[in-house]
């Protein structure tokens, strides 16, 4: 469903990403790993439209999307999270989920003022959907808490739920386990797998936590210094000599 061909990104004289290719199938968890500064987030930023790539193609569901603005890409069904949590911290948990469905309940202001049956119906549906996802991530009893007062692990899960209410086909998670304790990481792990299993979403994952990556990925692409190093199943990648060298240094 997503294919990246020979992606390149140049910042002035620095070639941050060079010749990275990737393809993500339907219902697949595809991880991008690599040492710090390898260019993982740069690849992400190109995919999600934050950067305009200097070269290469990104094809999502048969359409070339490289260079399109971020909001257009997200409206096509490719939604991302950030390394730093970016919730609306001064809004309640449920409002965070409602506001993400704004586009799906596109009624006009007048309908909202007189509260037509159609408006109420849509409003009720989006509330149901928010409640469903809150239950799914185990935060139904925190629905009215301000998002800024949640624990870090909860904020991470809420962020994923907020992506999911927009009904994406592909979810891009940038280091979702960063700063989580082992128990929270495990919960997150199960959540990501269930997104694939139960909701048929493809997931592209950047992660440093090797246990998480090896556990849940269907395929892994390794990047080193902006260049593709290896690609394959977790077993293949684990056994790859170049990968071991890049991570552990020359023996």
């Amino acid at each position: 469903m997503l294919e990246i061909q020979n992606l390149a990104m140049r910042f002035g004289g620095l070639l941050a990403v060079d010749g990275v290719s990737l393809d993500v199938q339907e219902r697949e968890i595809h991880s991008i790993i690599g040492p710090n500064g390898a260019g993982k987030t740069t690849v992400f930023n190109c995919m999600s439209g934050f950067y305009k790539p200097s070269g290469g193609k990104i094809i999502f569901q048969g359409k070339e999307i490289q260079g399109k603005p971020d909001y257009k890409i997200s409206r096509m069904g490719m939604v991302r999270t950030f390394q730093h949590v970016r919730l609306f911290t001064q809004m309640s948990v449920v409002e965070n989920l409602l506001v993400a469905q704004h586009r799906h309940l596109n009624t006009n202001l007048l309908a909202g003022l007189v509260k037509t049956p159609n408006y109420r119906e849509r409003e009720r549906k989006s509330l149901d959907r928010a409640a469903y996802w809150l239950e799914r991530i185990g935060m139904l009893d925190q629905a009215n808490v301000d998002a800024g007062n949640l624990s870090y692990g909860q904020q991470r899960r809420l962020e994923i739920a907020r992506c999911m209410v927009t009904k994406p086909q592909l979810l891009m998670l940038d280091e979702p386990a960063a700063g989580l304790n082992p128990a929270e990481t495990l919960e997150l792990n199960q959540l990501i797998v269930s997104l694939k299993e139960d909701y048929s979403v493809s997931v592209v994952l950047i992660e440093h936590d090797m246990n998480l990556v090896m556990d849940i990925s269907d395929r892994i692409t390794v990047i080193n210094q902006g260049r593709p190093l290896a690609s394959g199943t977790p077993q293949e990648v684990r056994a790859n000599k170049d990968v071991i060298k890049a991570y552990l240094g020359e023996a």
Binding site: Y71, S74, M91, E95, R103, H104, L109, R162, T166
Partner: peptide
Amino acid sequence: RSRTGRACRAVSQDLGMANLLGID
């Protein structure tokens, strides 16, 4: 209370994120 009001608050907190989530 209103949906547009909610979107206003979201935009004032993080315009880029609100845009990404599909708010016009």
